[in-house]
Design a binder for these strands. Structure first.
Lengths: 213, 213
DNA sequence: GCCACAATCAGACCAAAGTCGAAGGCCTGA
DNA sequence: TCAGGCCTTCGACTTTGGTCTGATTGTGGC
């Protein structure tokens, strides 16, 4: 157990954020707690404080696009333990979260004591491994070989951005983005940008089921 | 404003529940706060305490089935003000919530001060009417104007097919497919094939139209 | 018969996507 | 220290995507 752990709590719901913060603050005295409500803020916070002991990450957050964001953060900061916090308890999502390098998975519906316990276990170095390794050639596995910059490019592709826009947002030339896209397509085993987006999107969390009248 | 108001907080997430409870407890001193995590518990609590000043109701809760639960509670207890709390900020959901008799709608992403302010306003008897009936320009509505053949083309686009492949599968020329794509993009209000696919997939468009003989 | 529209296609044209080869930086192990 | 690998960057080139003009055919409604 770390003496005075530092947490980064990422959730766009102030309620959830505050609840987690106060729970962790009580359970881990002297803990340093940083908040974030967008993927960009998470990246900035990790840039300032790469030694963060645990990142509590909500999946349904602006810019995250489901598990794509997890993989992105993972490739940028391989050391920081990521604890995925989500309301989607579907087995597929949970399994994929682990495939992408998450250290633990917490259901938002869980009681706070359980959440605190899981966080403590992660601080102690425990990795909540998934029950079993998945069958060989999953998309997630192929995707896991992407470099940080390639993940960033893919994240923008998934949002529907064009190469020119991505180049501008990343501050590089369009030719560079194109080169990244080529490698991404090869690594994912698809033949077009559209197919890559389709597959990557299938990793995202299914949101907000439509209401029946 | 009621001197010592009584609240019923209904949410299946302990975190959200506690956060709401502590926020309301601080803002309204002496408030009586009851919790519930299922629709059945909400009904039981209202049976015991029909004079509750405000019901904060989460939509994604066991037994709720979306907004039908709101209507049910409304018919059972026409007096109790219902404040719908949800993460789904879609205009259609909000509008329907008011149609079903909700007194206010709170987004889970809103800051706690705003939530407290809204609750206070409801206690004062205010009904938060929806800001305006929005012009209803949903993607689904735009998509509804597609012709049968355009739907087929879109279905193949969503699967990641290229124009040439689509042309072959439909038994028409590539120029024809391109023409259809152009119209589809315009009707959907997007600027690229990829964006169209992203939006279409978010609606879970039924694929696999039988190919014309 | 006339009109509106769906569906088909061609040819030209520009923009976006994707491929290939290559260069420089960085780290690592021999 | 040097070789080799990997990441990132980019320019030149080819392919695909998408628009526009314009045209032909068939269908259903008024």
């Amino acid at each position: 157990m770390v003496a005075a752990p530092s947490f980064l709590i990422a959730d766009d719901h102030p309620m959830v954020r505050d609840a987690l913060a106060s729970a962790l603050g009580q359970a881990f005295h002297g803990a340093e707690i940083v908040m974030a409500s967008t993927l960009a803020q998470v990246q900035a916070a990790l840039e300032r404080e790469p030694e963060t002991d645990a990142l509590l990450l909500d999946l349904d957050m602006p810019g995250m696009d489901g598990l794509t964001g997890v993989a992105l953060l993972r490739s940028e900061h391989p050391i920081v333990p990521i604890i995925v916090v989500s309301a989607a308890r579907e087995a597929a999502v949970v399994r994929r979260a682990y495939e992408f390098g998450a250290s633990a998975y917490i259901d938002k519906s869980a009681p706070l004591e359980e959440i605190v316990g899981t966080v403590g276990a992660v601080l102690d170095g425990e990795i909540f491994a998934p029950p079993e390794a998945e069958p060989a050639d999953s998309f997630a596995q192929r995707a896991a070989r992407l470099t940080p910059q390639q993940w960033r490019v893919l994240a923008f592709m998934v949002q529907g951005d064009q190469n020119k826009q991505i180049a501008h947002k990343l501050g590089v030339g369009e030719a560079t983005v194109k080169a990244h896209v080529t490698v991404i397509l090869r690594k994912l085993g698809v033949r077009s940008r559209t197919q890559a987006v389709i597959e990557a999107r299938s990793l995202a969390i299914p949101v907000a089921e439509p209401v029946r009248p």
